[in-house]
Simulated scan of single mutants.
Amino acid sequence: MKTFTNLALSAMAALASLAILPSASSAQSTMAYPEKCKSQGMDMSKADMSMNGMPTGEMTDYQKASMNGMKDMHMNMMQGMMKKDADVSFVCGMIAHHMGAISMSEVELEYGDNDEAKQMAKKVIEAQKKEIEEMSKWVDKEAK
């Protein structure tokens, strides 16, 4: 368990280098991460998510939006992986992962120019939302 905790803390430190200010248009704002996937005693909202000196002023708007989605996804994945039940941990991690895919697709729809890429993004959103719904129902039923 100590090794797992150290791994989680290392992952949090790595994420701190990727995080930027919260995004108003991420998948997390349109779909809620299930409460049963959140780990007690692990309040990720208070984690230090500074950019550690990264020059955010040089990033484009789409890069900032992408980074926000990654931060949200990784924070939720870390919450899910702390669950004691391996099955619940897996499904919660996949929900967060799918939410990240939706967020990335939303960034493509907002900033991309290529019609084919935008169509792929729309397909990803549709498929991932459906799977998130299925997995969330499973978590509600199976997670203690």
Rank of each mutant, 00 (worst) to 15 (best):
M67C: 05
M54I: 04
M67D: 08
K122R: 11
Y62H: 08
S17C: 08
P22H: 08
M82A: 05
M49V: 04
E134P: 01
Q119W: 01
K129L: 00
Y111S: 10
A47T: 11
S105Q: 06
T5V: 12
E35R: 08
E106W: 00
M31F: 12
Q79A: 03
T30Q: 14
K141H: 05
K122L: 03
S23H: 13
V107P: 13
L21T: 11
A127V: 06
D87F: 03
A8Q: 11
D113T: 10
A14D: 13
M73A: 13
L7C: 06
A24S: 15
M70T: 14
D113V: 03
T3C: 04
K84V: 04
S25W: 06
M42H: 11
L109W: 09
K46L: 13
I20L: 08
I102H: 04
M67Q: 09
N52L: 14
F4G: 05
K2M: 02
T56E: 15
M67L: 10
M135T: 06
H97R: 02
E108I: 10
S66L: 09
A117P: 01
S25Q: 14
G53F: 06
E142T: 12
I102K: 03
S105K: 05
H74G: 04
G80Q: 03
E131A: 05
M12D: 15
S23P: 13
A86W: 08
K123S: 12
M135C: 04
K36W: 01
M51K: 00
F90Q: 10
Q63S: 07
A96H: 10
I125F: 06
G112Y: 03
Q79D: 12
Y33N: 06
D115G: 03
V139E: 05
N6M: 06
L15K: 09
A127L: 06
S105T: 05
I125K: 13
D72E: 10
M12R: 14
K84C: 01
N76T: 04
Q119H: 09
P22N: 04
E58S: 15
N76V: 00
M12H: 10
I125W: 06
Q63K: 07
S29V: 05
Q63T: 08
V107E: 12
L9N: 15
D48S: 11
Q119K: 14
D113S: 15
